[in-house]
Design a protein around this nucleic acid. Structure first.
Length: 669
RNA sequence: UGGCCCAUGGUGUAACUGGCAACACAUCUGUUUUUGGUACAGAAGAGUCUAGGUUCGAAACCUAGUGGGCCAACCA
């Protein structure tokens, strides 16, 4: 709605256009229609964000409607979980509704359609019906029951409802077109018989309406203006419209507006799966502790992991809305949570992988309580006291006996600052019989004004409290575990997705409460897990801090994920580099042109003629690419390639070009 | 043997009825910093899948091709 430079997505464009064409703004109405058969996940937040977000920007009502037409799968538990998650995200629905609220109305309309010859009862088996339906490339055949009389249809259908027939014996179908290229239009099913207890209507019904019939008409009854769903429902749109137009004839006074279905691409996140079925399997096979395991992409999992509603809403905003298949990099999600927590989380000190430091010139019985700032990003957050004493823990990673100048941390003979405390200098180490360092002996200096490169976090050993820390890595090793057709997704699981550690924390954390969030200084953001008790604290690592040291530090062993991108870059074929250089060629100043040219000439030595030839067909207007091709060609010729018809043609054509550089290059041959 | 949808830096999204391809993340440089964080400043990276066409001018419009996705549950 904002009047400023708007970068609207295609759905907003549609709405703006409808508004411009006379749709009253107060007629805008949206809905989010989950089926209560599972937990909501990060993929759903996109749909939620779109519809509820539209409601917020246009100040329009958004209904939460449970699409509960299949009692065999749906449960109240899921209804409750879904409501909780949406509310937690901070969205408010106008009405809490259920498709099952409309069962009677739907039934009445179905009767009307039978009377108008638009629906009929089919009494074949599901196999027979499936066979007659044809395939995407083959048309279907009419059912032998397609031309039953209206009376017979009415009789059968009312008896279906009355429970006179066993499940599977009859269905109600819309009479549309068995030869439609759209399979959904080949006399789709409207009702099936199901003797199942429904979580809301109990045993009132034994026939239940199908999705297409129910969903569209629910939108219609609620007078939804824009019904937004994901791409796979695109083919359903024809049917959505067909049902809608037919019912409109019966109800246009009561329900004047015809809703409009539009489809967007669903969200995919790298290294994670979104299928409810597969997520369920992770739960059932006990690979995770439950739907809310912090590694799960469910909303409840993210919540337990420490993701905030705000961070998720930001994420959805940044992800955008379009119709293109996409895979969002998890780093974007991580950026969003860091951005949020950076402002709000208090900083504390915790050592996850301890090594003991003895400050030899600090008196044994002395202790001091030093001031520590809670959050420098938040002026109101204040200070707390942290205890300092002769023996402290620092991270193992923060000490090396010897290290280069790029290592800012503690090394023998070197100095570092202890955050909120003194500057220490490492003098010697104590080792055990295996040569493992057990203690680092340091001396401290009370002058804290000195400039030192590194600052370490630490914890006084005698004041430290222990806690369990759960660190998480991605659940899958594969970038898109959902789409690998050769492998079952369970094979792609990361066996090291959970690491449990015992950490030492500063004592101010003694009475934290479940859900509280902190930044463990220099390590990352952590929250107090549901399992945490006063006697045994448990923290989850929400996300690490950005770590530029991690990227540059010398790596002891090959890390697969780190090496992969580099390999790809090295493998980049010479020809594609030449093409790229060519693209920019004509825009470069002369000296850079010369440089590019030299580079192309070098690269050309690694190019085979067969690979180069296709470039001769480059569009005329892409002069740069043609120049690069020409330069490379000249190298090949010089290396002994024989001229042929194609080559001559290419050169002649170049000579006639309007681009002078190209002509010049061509003339040199 | 079909129908529909999609194609813009590594990733994701923009570019209003054709007019210098922008923003975010990621990457890389610096500066500041008692977090190798944050903040700030900057850099690199795309002639918009290909080929034709329309036009003074095309990422956008048209045609064809290529590539990807979706469509055959008494699921939603």
């Amino acid at each position: 709605m904002s009047e400023e430079t708007k970068a609207l997505n295609f759905i907003e464009h549609i709405i703006e256009e409808d508004l411009a064409n006379g749709l009253a703004k107060d007629k805008l109405r949206f809905r989010f229609p989950p089926e209560p058969n599972g937990y909501l996940h990060i993929g759903h937040t996109k749909a939620i964000g779109i519809s509820f977000g539209l409601g917020e920007t246009y100040n329009a009502p958004v209904n939460l409607r449970f699409d509960d037409t299949n009692p065999s799968k749906e449960e109240q538990e899921y209804v409750d979980a879904i409501k909780k998650d949406i509310a937690w995200l901070g969205y408010q629905w106008e009405n809490e509704l259920y498709s099952s609220d409309y069962f009677q109305k739907l039934y009445d309309w179905a009767i009307q359609m039978i009377k108008d010859g638009k629906a009929y009862v089919d009494s074949q088996t599901s196999e027979e019906i499936a066979e007659q339906k044809g395939t995407p490339t083959q048309v279907g055949k009419n059912s032998p029951y397609r031309d039953r009389s209206i009376e017979e249809n009415l009789d059968l259908f009312t008896r279906m409802k009355a429970g006179e027939f066993p499940a599977g014996t009859h269905i109600l179908r819309a009479k549309i077109d068995m030869e439609s290229p759209n399979m959904l239009m080949r006399d789709p099913m409207m009702y099936r018989i199901m003797f199942e207890h429904h979580h809301r209507t109990g045993d009132d019904w034994c026939i239940y309406p199908m999705y297409d019939w129910t969903h569209g008409e629910s939108d219609y009854i609620e007078q939804i203006s824009h019904s937004l769903c994901s791409l796979e429902f695109k083919p359903h749109r024809d049917l959505y419209d067909w049902f809608k137009e037919n019912v409109h004839v019966y109800a246009k006074d009561e329900f004047p507006m015809m809703p409009k279905q539009r489809e967007f691409a669903r969200l995919n996140l790298s290294y994670t799966i979104m299928s409810k079925r597969k997520l369920l399997r992770l739960v059932e096979d006990k690979f995770v502790s439950g739907w809310d395991d912090p590694r799960m992409p469910t909303i409840s999992g993210l919540r337990r992991r420490g993701y905030t509603p705000n961070s998720i809403r930001q994420f959805i905003k940044k992800v955008g809305v379009a119709k293109r298949e996409n895979v969002i990099d998890v780093s974007l999600l991580e950026f969003c949570i860091r951005e949020d927590l950076n402002k709000s989380a208090n900083r504390v000190m915790a050592v996850l992988d301890p090594i003991k430091v003895v400050i030899t010139n600090y008196p044994e019985d002395k202790e001091e309580w030093l001031d520590a700032e809670n959050n420098q990003e938040d002026a109101t957050s204040g200070f707390r006291k942290v205890p300092f004493s002769r023996e402290i823990y620092i991270e193992k990673d923060d000490f090396k006996e010897e290290a280069g100048s790029k290592y800012f941390r503690l090394k023998l003979g070197g100095e570092v600052r202890l955050k909120n405390a003194y500057i220490i200098k490492a003098n010697s180490v104590v080792k055990d019989e295996n040569g493992e360092i057990t203690e680092i002996h340091c001396t401290y200096d009370e002058d804290t004004s000195k400039k030192v490169k590194g600052t370490l976090h630490w914890v006084s050993i005698k004041h430290a409290i222990e806690a369990e820390i759960r660190e998480y890595d991605r659940l899958f090793m594969h970038e898109s575990p959902d789409s690998d057709k050769d492998k079952d997704f369970m094979e792609l699981l990361n066996p090291k997705s959970l690491t449990v550690k015992t950490a030492y924390l500063e004592p101010s954390l003694a009475d934290v409460k479940v859900g509280e969030q902190f930044q463990f200084q220099r390590l990352g953001y952590f929250n107090v897990d549901n399992d945490s008790k006063a006697e045994k604290l448990v923290f989850n690592k929400t996300v690490g801090l950005r770590d530029s040291w991690e990227k540059i530090k010398p790596k002891p062993q090959n890390n697969q994920t780190q090496n992969k991108p580099q390999q790809q870059q090295q493998k980049r074929p010479a020809l594609s580099v030449i093409q790229q250089l060519g693209k920019k060629y004509t825009n470069l100043p002369e000296e850079k042109q010369a440089k590019s040219k030299a580079e192309i000439q070098t690269l050309a030595n690694d190019v085979a003629y067969d690979d180069l030839e296709p470039l001769f067909g480059t569009a005329v207007k892409k002069a740069g690419t043609r120049i690069a091709t020409l330069i490379a060609l000249k190298v090949l010729l010089k290396n002994g390639l024989e001229r042929n018809e194609t080559i001559n043609e290419f050169i002649e054509k170049a000579k006639e070009d309007k681009n002078e550089l190209l002509v010049a290059e061509a003339s040199e041959i």
